[in-house]
Lab assay of single mutants.
Amino acid sequence: MSGNGNAAATAEENSPKMRVIRVGTRKSQLARIQTDSVVATLKASYPGLQFEIIAMSTTGDKILDTALSKIGEKSLFTKELEHALEKNEVDLVVHSLKDLPTVLPPGFTIGAICKRENPHDAVVFHPKFVGKTLETLPEKSVVGTSSLRRAAQLQRKFPHLEFRSIRGNLNTRLRKLDEQQEFSAIILATAGLQRMGWHNRVGQILHPEECMYAVGQGALGVEVRAKDQDILDLVGVLHDPETLLRCIAERAFLRHLEGGCSVPVAVHTAMKDGQLYLTGGVWSLDGSDSIQETMQATIHVPAQHEDGPEDDPQLVGITARNIPRGPQLAAQNLGISLANLLLSKGAKNILDVARQLNDAH
């Protein structure tokens, strides 16, 4: 009898209710805020589980004197976190989706994509230029951005401005803007500013005609071990179906173009009346040469937790077992079709030249 009692006690200790789920994140304040929001949602869904947040620095956090596009290494903000995932030191990792490459290392998958916040870019102005827009900034004003995508589009749109690289986390960039006289304004992701509670610093939100956004911008991705079915089931509740389908289309477009950090590629997606609209573009580094096109596809946005595919093969690095396969494939095909259209119009040449120029500098 006593033996059975011990077995029952052991089973209770090993039951999922007692389990601590370890969540990996970057150390920056924004990353911690984003991770806290994901953990809060998981806690609400699984009140019996405990969650421990483990923060670590990544290569991208450490190399702050070089433009991201020049470092010449993929997975700048993800490699150390993936290493911890691989060694079973954490069970899942919360990322900004735009930091996750469209091809993940073997053994990993994006197990959830959370509801997207505003994906557009924002302009934050130096205190002396508050009330201005990019259009009304004085001639030769210097605007800071760490992104080739932003610089290429904005140089084309605002030729009277000069664009220079600015690195560091959000706090560091804002301090550089406010305390030094080098920059009249800087460009940042609206979602990051909003998550930090800095709505009052948003001086201008850039519309798609001015600057399309990065693939996955404004959404959070939760990376897990691809074979860890328990954790895949656990994080599945975080999937937002519309965000998922938009981001599958965007990531398929980028992957098929073979774009990345070192080339200016941008997108804009919208879901309306059962249609998914995808606009994508590529630019030369100075913005003088560009190709942009829009395509659409009829896609039914499923309700969360309709029964999805059981075999769960990944699409552009994403596993969404609780979302039907048909809409996911339709979104992926839309991204591939748009990429093929741009490639047929000469996108590869623009991107190759951009890559060579970026590598040469």
Rank of each mutant, 00 (worst) to 15 (best):
Q204Y: 08
R167D: 05
R26F: 01
V38A: 08
D286H: 09
D233I: 09
L68W: 07
V23P: 01
K140F: 10
D311W: 08
K70G: 11
A84F: 11
S284V: 01
G236W: 01
I113R: 01
D289I: 15
Q34N: 09
R164S: 11
G346H: 05
V94T: 06
S37V: 08
G218S: 01
N322S: 07
E82W: 06
Q314H: 13
I186R: 01
L238E: 03
A347P: 15
I187P: 01
V202N: 01
E80W: 07
K348V: 01
G287M: 14
L193G: 13
D286W: 09
L85Q: 06
I166N: 08
L92M: 12
I110Y: 04
K140V: 10
L30K: 01
L100A: 04
G107T: 01
P106G: 09
L49P: 11
A226T: 09
A219D: 01
P302F: 04
M271G: 13
I166R: 04
Q34H: 05
Q217H: 06
F108K: 01
I205F: 01
D230Y: 07
F158C: 12
K140H: 08
T294F: 09
E86I: 13
R255K: 06
I53Y: 13
P208C: 03
E139F: 14
D121A: 01
K115R: 11
I166K: 04
C247N: 06
D178Q: 06
P159F: 08
H239N: 07
P264M: 01
G221I: 13
V39R: 08
P47N: 13
V353K: 01
L188H: 12
E52H: 05
K115V: 09
A266V: 15
G144R: 07
L193Y: 01
H160G: 11
R19T: 10
L170I: 10
R32Q: 14
L244P: 04
D312Y: 12
I166P: 01
N322M: 10
T136S: 14
Q296Y: 10
E162R: 12
V23I: 04
L134S: 01
H300E: 12
L174D: 01
V235A: 03
A112N: 01
G60Y: 01
V222S: 01
A31C: 01
R22T: 11
I110Q: 01
G144T: 09
R321V: 03
D121Y: 03
E89W: 08
V93K: 01
R26P: 01
G287T: 01
K128E: 15
F125P: 12
L193E: 01
H120S: 12
S337Q: 01
R225N: 04
E306W: 11
Q229V: 06
M295V: 13
A122N: 11
L64V: 05
G216R: 01
R195A: 04
A84T: 11
H207N: 05
C211V: 12
F163Q: 10
E139L: 14
T319R: 01
I318R: 05
